[in-house]
Design a protein around this nucleic acid. Structure first.
Lengths: 208, 208
DNA sequence: TAGATTGTTAATCGATTAACAATC
DNA sequence: TAGATTGTTAATCGATTAACAATC
């Protein structure tokens, strides 16, 4: 098995992937570490280190073959294996996430939607049906879902989290504007948009 | 002037703020560093270091006064000063961002929306009107806007970015699924959701 | 006072950067 | 070959953690 990557390296890899894809789609055969570095504003040695960490290698004087590198990253990041997930909360944010079809390139397949608004039950968003949240436990078990995307108001987030975990959910991508807590064996990513904005706004004002 | 914070510290501060607010709203007079640390899964010494970095202090044996601490963070992070921003792209994601009223607690005030769909021009989303993107330059200058939130398809992101910067925009919060490039004096935050998902999914599979 | 928690200095750890060797 | 770029080792830098003193 692969040696564990550092968190910063892991976070950079999907960003490299996006850039490699752009180059590949444009028909570029090779990309140099300094090009990636420049686009993401990191050090070029950093880029080569990260690439070395996933056991890929390039050609001195030429760079990295975009097609090969792309494939390598897809395997390493497991992007080609679609991970089925449920999305809870069919508001605007939930709709945006459900409709966006770019996630499939990154291994995410949202297969069903859940809401507690009777008006929304039964709707079809693309090929995804909206179910009542009370069906969540049953459906999670039926489809052996491991991942839930939470796009609900903050007040309901922890309650839904607890329910989902009780049904066997192993990872939660939380867009609710609140910090949810989970047992340590469950993975959670609190996508705190407001917090991200504050960082941006501080950088703007203080040139952090 | 305040000494510059490290990037990791700056990123943690808004998260502390969210927790302090929760405690404060619940009527808790004090919070201890170990409670914050536990909720965010960081070291409690880390928390105290971060608090020291913004020149706040608590009381040994008791903790940090939630009301005072909340106010201190609001001042430090400049949350009470509303930063006016324009949002470009009135799709589902744009709507979600425009309608969410929690941003005001974090200093973001989206004052107008822009789209290129004629059907959407003139609509009112809450108290925010939708204008045609061709009015963007004029409006940016009129209202002296410094921040733009981009919620448009990836293909249009760089073009809009360039336009916005030409009009004097200083910071861009980019939700488009592409990496945008800006001159070094402009602040950009590429909110790459797919990339964030990949990190979550890798953690799930490999227990990173 | 004793004990719990803060505040701070010192030690460690690991990420980043620099230097340079390898190579096409 | 010369030069550009990769790959890798060593040095630096800074963030995190540990230890412990201060204090209510």
């Amino acid at each position: 098995m692969q040696k564990k990557l550092s968190a910063p390296t892991l976070r950079r890899l999907p960003r490299y992937y996006r850039i490699i894809c752009e180059y590949f789609d444009r028909g570029e055969k090779y990309i140099r570490s300094c090009e990636i570095a420049h686009k993401l504003d990191v050090d070029e040695t950093q880029v080569r280190k990260d690439i070395a960490a996933i056991n890929y290698s390039g050609k001195p004087k030429i760079g990295f073959n975009t097609g090969e590198f792309k494939t390598h990253l897809e395997k390493f990041l497991n992007l080609t294996e679609a991970k089925k997930a449920f999305l809870i909360g069919v508001g605007n944010l939930g709709l945006a996430l459900a409709k966006y079809n770019g996630f499939s390139n990154y291994g995410l397949d949202i297969v069903a939607l859940f809401d507690n608004d009777p008006q929304k039950i039964g709707l079809k968003i693309g090929d995804k049906e909206v179910f009542h949240v009370c069906q969540l436990p049953e459906k999670i078990r039926q489809e052996a879902i491991k991942i839930v995307v939470l796009a609900i108001p903050g007040e309901q987030a922890q309650k839904m989290t607890d329910l989902a975990i009780k049904c066997g959910i192993k990872a939660i991508w939380n867009f609710a504007p609140t910090n949810i807590e989970v047992p340590k064996e469950v993975i959670v990513s609190n996508q705190d948009l407001a917090a991200d904005f504050v960082v941006l706004s501080m950088k703007l004002n203080d040139s952090y």
